[in-house]
Design a protein around this nucleic acid. Structure first.
Length: 422
RNA sequence: GGAGGGAUCGCAUAGUUGGUCUAGUGCGGCCGCCUGCUAAGCGGUUACGGGGCCUUAAAGCUCCGUCAUGGGUUCGAAUCCCAUUCCCUCCGCCA
């Protein structure tokens, strides 16, 4: 969230940023409640100071004067009344603050939606085929390495099974990516819980605004994670870190669960948009002064995966309207899918500055004895495994219907070519 | 699921017959003195959040809150009562 003080002191900046995100957060209502809150606090704190003083006096007296005690009892009632009002205003204010999106970085191009995003760069040669390249669901179906129909039978639309070398390929991708990030890019591998508390979802910004997108276990009030960002960022919730440990870099693979509310009709076939998918996620905690450098490195670590797989890709910068709720800046690497003749988002790398840190209360001490400050948090997929699998199938498909295994994955898969599975 | 124990200012602890607790002490951290250097010693300092005053700002001053969380009793709660959460031990069940 934004700091209340910042909103109070820069209301116009906030209004502008919120508008550029296409959001309608009630900034003026927040300012009004903030005023009311401070007036109430001044009043109730003065009363409390008097009560503290008189109570101490009473404590020192041998004879307790009943009229003084009666007066204090009245004062106590008044304090209780005011406290109740402060609590109410606090709760209202907090509820509203959680609905205010993070402000875009000033350098981010202003725009309405994904049509205003900027293509930053293109990498790799688009493959050419002497046959008509197929979409990955057809390739997978013909090879018998995925089973979409039975996914629907067992779990419903947007679920699928992997079989044989399909399942092994997915496992190989996960394993190889984690090795790359932990051994070469310097991330600490973690394995995280798939179910998290409401506070964790609020910490990273999924709640309260986007509850309908999440799977929720009502009896325990736990949420299935939509991304490893949630458990891994919340690792350091309510902590004060030593400056020396920053930047902290984590790599974590998890399944991710998304209801895809509002996506009806989009990407209904294949592995692109499903309710459950595997993703390797990178999460960083940095000092504020270095977070944009770290974002560049994070983006490059994600793109490195695509380069090593020799999958053509481009990098797209999100405009203000497509940044999402929590990010100040976001880049999406998109992989080329020849079977569909289009680029598809395969990663998303964001800086949240102190937005999540403030919600989750993640701080660091810049120097011994110095006051704690909020860290900056960043994350990015590297990569979405299901979409990587789809990209491999489409880019490495061969005329005879088989799929070559990318060089780097061969030791993990154990074969050079994927042929049919029965 | 059952029984019991616990949660105090970075760490370890004192404090539970309610009022000099604005929470003591040790360790650690920081600053300084001392020292050829290190250690030791000596002195000082040492949380977080919020409001106000004063400031360009920082610093400073002041008030309020926080002894797991939320309620309650009371003129006054770390201390008494209730609920909740988390942790630990034992039993049961379980991959």
């Amino acid at each position: 969230m934004l700091s209340l003080r910042f909103i109070r002191e820069h209301p116009d900046l906030v209004r502008e940023g919120v508008a550029h995100k296409g959001d309608t957060a009630p900034v003026d209502e927040i300012l009004r409640l903030d005023c009311e809150r401070r007036e109430l606090l001044a009043e109730v704190e003065a009363l409390r100071a008097r009560r503290n003083e008189v109570s101490q006096q009473i404590g020192r007296m041998k004879q307790k004067p009943p009229e003084l005690i009666a007066e204090m009892r009245q004062l106590g009632d008044r304090i209780k009344e005011l406290d109740a009002r402060v609590d109410q205003v606090d709760a209202d204010l907090n509820g509203l603050l959680l609905l205010v999106p993070n402000l875009p970085h000033p350098s981010v191009p202003v725009g309405l939606d994904d049509r205003d995003n900027i293509e930053v760069s293109r990498h790799g040669e688009l493959p050419t085929f002497d046959f008509e390249p197929l979409p990955h669901w057809e390739i997978a179906d013909r090879l018998g390495i995925a089973d979409f129909e039975r996914g629907v039978k067992v779990s419903g639309p947007r679920f699928y099974f992997l079989r044989g070398l399909g399942a092994r390929l997915e496992r190989a991708i996960i394993d190889w990516m984690l090795e790359l990030h932990s051994r070469e890019h310097g991330y600490l591998e973690v394995a995280a819980p798939y179910l998290v508390r409401r506070e964790s979802m609020t910490g990273t910004g999924q709640l309260p605004k986007f509850e309908e997108d999440a799977y929720h276990c009502e009896v325990d009030d736990l949420f299935l994670i939509p991304t490893a960002e949630v458990p891994v960022t919340n690792l350091h919730r309510q902590e004060i870190l030593d400056a020396g440990v920053l930047p902290l870099k984590y790599a974590c693979y998890t399944a991710c669960f998304r209801r895809e509310a509002g996506a009806a009709g989009r990407d209904t076939r294949g592995m692109i948009r499903v309710h459950q998918f595997v993703k390797v996620e990178l999460v960083k905690f940095t000092e504020p002064s270095t977070s944009y450098q770290e974002l560049e490195k994070l983006l490059d670590d994600a793109c490195d995966v695509l380069r090593r797989l020799a999958i053509p890709y481009r990098i797209v910068q999100m405009c203000t309207g497509d940044l999402g709720f929590s990010a100040t800046m976001k880049f999406d690497p998109e992989a080329w899918l020849p079977g569909q003749d289009r680029y598809v988002e395969i990663s998303s790398c964001s800086n949240f500055e102190d937005f999540q840190a403030r919600r989750a209360n993640i701080r660091y001490r810049p120097a011994p004895g110095a006051h704690p400050e909020f860290v900056h948090t960043l994350n990015g997929s590297a990569l979405a495994v299901g979409r990587t699998l789809a990209a491999i199938l489409e880019n490495y498909q061969q005329a005879d219907g088989s799929v070559a295994v990318p060089e780097v994955l061969r030791p993990y898969v154990g074969v050079d070519v994927i042929r049919g599975v029965r």
